[in-house]
């Protein structure tokens, strides 16, 4: 390698780029392939469709990125979505609703169900984080517990029935702005921006990397590990609560069994995007690209008329292959 005086900062090494942005290239190839096989794929309607379908588990994947970089895991986000969703929905029903959860409650401003969902989500996350930080039980166990408890609470709260007939101000959040841009997509992009700033430009973000990179060294270096762990899981829960609002807006009702298995899709998206389960490595753009890879694949396979059962098989393979590629990227030389 010879050093050149001009443009010393930018070195273009195709191998390195392929390694670092391999998954982006995969996504581009998928999009190219699909648009050739099925021109309808690239229509604005379909693109917005794909993005909308990505938004709910995509938002959860953003929170999980923080968790997984810190070398943790959160299995509870699907259940937490259901719990915050039914609570929010019960506070956001119209007067006309036939099975009104609070029959005597007047129609509340939309901010009430929204804040309720965010608060419930954040609270569940905070509890998981507190358990992990204080009792030192593995995150897998703590959030497995939270997953089951939250689902149970959602069923108890709703009596096992969906909560429906939501106020228009809530369903508008699942609709389209100016009849073109889906609101869930706007929310998703805003959260991507916020998460990105949080992870890269704040002390909290740097602490997340440090905790995942070497928890003992983080403690020694003066990082408040317990507090940050609680914050990490709180943020993840908060985003699950936000996803619940988007879900309620889109579907128009929330079933206590909703979003079952979403946590795994969100974890898969984060993982495909290159966030390492060994901690310390990961990025927000990765969670976005990873989520898109899953959505594009689902959308594409549907457009191509591939059987839904087969789609699952392909999805599983993609996750494993993505992680194999990722491990190679992070392996030290030789």
């Amino acid at each position: 390698m010879t050093k050149t005086a001009a443009s010393p900062k930018i070195k273009i090494d195709p191998k390195q780029i392929a390694k670092k942005y391999g998954i982006v290239i995969v996504l581009i190839l998928m999009i190219l392939g699909l648009s050739i096989a099925e021109p309808a794929f690239l229509s604005p309607t379909n693109i917005f469709n794909v993005l909308t379908q990505t938004s709910i588990f995509g938002i959860m994947a953003l929170g999980l990125t923080f968790v997984i970089i810190s070398k943790g895991i959160d299995l509870s986000v699907g259940s937490v979505l259901a719990l915050s969703g039914v609570i929010a929905a019960s506070l956001g029903q119209t007067m006309a609703a036939t099975s009104k959860y609070y029959p005597n409650l007047a129609e509340l401003p939309v901010i009430v169900p929204i804040l309720a969902a965010l608060a419930v989500g954040a609270f569940c996350g905070a509890i998981s984080g507190f358990l992990i930080a204080k009792t030192k039980i593995p995150a897998f166990i703590a959030t497995l517990g939270m997953m089951t408890v939250a689902r149970g609470l959602a069923l108890i709260y709703s009596g096992g029935k969906p909560v429906s007939t939501l106020i228009p101000n809530l369903t508008v959040l699942g609709g389209k702005l100016f009849n073109v841009v889906p609101v869930p997509v706007i929310i998703y992009f805003v959260v991507i921006l916020i998460s990105s700033v949080l992870l890269n430009r704040t002390r909290f973000g740097k602490n997340v990397y440090a905790i995942g990179g070497n928890i003992t060294a983080a403690e020694v270096s003066g990082v408040n590990v317990s507090k940050n762990l609680v914050l990490i899981y709180t943020y993840c829960g908060l985003l699950a609560g936000l996803a619940a609002i988007v879900f309620a807006g889109r579907v128009g009702s929330v079933h206590p069994g909703a979003a079952s298995g979403y946590e795994l899709t969100a974890i898969a998206a984060t993982t495909i995007g290159g966030t390492s389960h060994s901690g310390g490595i990961g990025a927000i753009w990765g969670a976005f690209v990873g989520a898109l890879v899953l959505s594009v694949m689902r959308n594409g396979l549907t457009l191509l008329g591939v059987d839904a059962y087969w789609q699952q098989v392909v999805e599983g393979l993609i996750i494993v292959v993505a992680v194999i590629i990722d491990m190679r990227k992070n392996a030290k030389r030789d």
Binding site: Y209, A210, G213, A217, A218, V220, N330
Partner: peptide, 11 residues
């Protein structure tokens, strides 16, 4: 208890 192996020299 010292380094964060996969993180940058800077951090």
């Amino acid at each position: 208890s010292g380094i964060f192996p996969m993180l940058s020299v800077q951090l």
